[in-house]
């Protein structure tokens, strides 16, 4: 109890929250782009699982984290092509197609794991900034700075990439012609079509970006945890989809949602480990992230409207 709310506890909790939020954030940013174009992808979790296995297996084989992440991206891209083809060109119903991708990812990642690896075998986790070969010593002194050090400099590269992707996604959506097209086809595809914007092409690319990020998110997860297992994601992809709604389709609010989710989880774990939360309250505490997310959804849902054409396939007549 002596550690009750000391600065170091709060800093550690926040740092855990940031790390925990990374796979959620990567996947949710990707889903944001897809949904802005009017396509809901419920297959994020399955894509993440495939990316997670691909990344993990690559590291087992090559020892290269970078290659692991790239393989995750490649797998996400490949799954994205399938999903985009089915939903954009074949006009398949998006909800059920996404569930299909999820189930495929869940089953196929496990099958590959059983066939190629078998028993879970730990790998080297993603190195934090100060452990990076070559440039690590620049950051090494920074890690030891009070508060700021553990909060900002004690993370792995993917954490920085995920958070840098927040302004990058905003920029892509708000400041580029592609982003403008994405927003237009997600809101009023007929209007975009009447001005010569290809709805199919725009949505196709948006889905590919989203799915690639889901693949990266999966690879980041398995490399961060340094392990792969059946259903490693445990529903992270679905929470990422919920975070897009939570964040009202705006990258920085999606980030806020991911951080909130991470913070609530980290608080529960950290504080339980310090007995700040009593053992008896652990069940209730475990529900907190879900409850807070649902509350936020309920409160926000009435205020913010999503892309008007979300889940609606487009055809000319």
């Amino acid at each position: 109890m002596s550690q009750f709310f000391t600065v170091s506890v709060l800093v550690a909790t926040l740092a855990t929250a940031i790390k925990f939020a990374v796979p959620y954030l990567l996947a949710a940013l990707g889903e944001t782009i897809g949904q802005r174009s009017g396509v809901l992808n419920l297959g994020v979790d399955g894509t993440m699982l495939l990316g997670a296995f691909g990344g993990y297996y690559t590291v087992i084989q090559t020892g290269s984290h970078l290659q692991g992440i790239l393989v995750g991206l490649g797998i996400g891209l490949a799954v994205g092509i399938v999903y985009a083809y089915v939903t954009v060109f074949l006009h398949a119903q998006q909800g059920i197609s996404g569930i299909g991708i999820f189930l495929f990812g869940l089953g196929f990642s496990d099958l590959l794991f059983q066939e190629l690896v078998g028993t879970p075998k730990p790998i080297r986790p993603l190195p934090t900034l100060d452990k990076l070969p070559g440039v690590g010593r620049i950051f090494e002194p920074l890690v030891d700075i009070d508060i700021v050090g553990p909060l900002l400099f004690d993370h792995n590269l993917m954490t920085y990439m995920a958070f840098l992707l927040v302004p990058a996604t905003t920029w892509l959506l708000m400041k580029t012609t592609f982003g403008m097209n994405v927003r237009a086809v997600g809101e009023n595809p007929q209007a975009a079509d009447s001005l010569g914007v290809s709805v199919a092409k725009t949505r196709f690319i948006a889905i590919l970006i989203g799915s690639s990020l889901a693949g990266i998110a999966g690879a980041t997860l398995s490399l961060q945890l340094a392990i792969f297992q059946h259903n490693l994601t445990n529903g992270i992809g679905f929470i990422a989809v919920a975070l897009v709604y939570f964040g009202a389709w705006r990258p920085r609010w999606v980030m806020a949602g991911a951080l909130l989710y991470g913070l609530v989880t980290a608080t529960r774990i950290r504080w339980q480990s310090l007995d700040i939360i009593p053992q008896g309250a652990s069940d209730i505490a475990a529900m907190a992230p879900a409850i807070i997310t649902i509350l936020a959804l309920v409160l926000l849902a009435s205020r913010v409207r999503g892309p008007a054409a979300l889940t609606r396939p487009f055809s000319r007549h």
């Binding site: 855990t16 796979p23 997860l221 392990i227 297992q229 445990n234 989880t265 774990i269």
Partner: peptide
């Protein structure tokens, strides 16, 4: 089964 939570 939640490896991420166990890790955290």
């Amino acid at each position: 089964s939640d490896v991420a939570l166990a890790t955290t």
